[in-house]
């Protein structure tokens, strides 16, 4: 169960810092930091430096990625 969900219609411009897992369906520009897992779903746009636990990407991520595990790229990832 995700504790933070950025919905498909939502854009965050700035810095997101989370203790728990984050699911991105919308857009984040800036910086995304989570101590737990980050999931970038299909259709999501992340133009941000990402520092997280396990990272799973099905959408688009542009930026530096620092993850505790190797990012899992799904088929639609860019």
């Amino acid at each position: 169960m995700a504790s933070t969900v950025i919905g498909a219609g939502i854009t965050i411009e700035g810095e997101v810092t989370a203790d728990d897992d984050v699911v991105v369906q919308g857009t984040i520009r800036g910086k995304l930091t989570s101590r737990d897992a980050v999931t970038v779903e299909s259709g999501a746009v992340v133009e941000a430096d990402v520092a997280s636990g396990p990272l799973s990407v099905a959408g688009a991520v542009t930026g530096n990625i620092t993850s505790t595990s190797r990012p899992a790229r799904r088929s639609s990832a860019t």
Binding site: A2, S3, T4, G7, G9, I10, T11, I12, E13, G14, E15, V16, T17, A18, D19, D20, V22, G26, T27, G30
Partner: peptide, 13 residues
């Protein structure tokens, strides 16, 4: 979520 901090602008539908 309760453990999440956002600094910036939140917009959209």
């Amino acid at each position: 979520g309760a453990g999440t901090r956002v600094r910036g602008r939140v917009t959209g539908d």
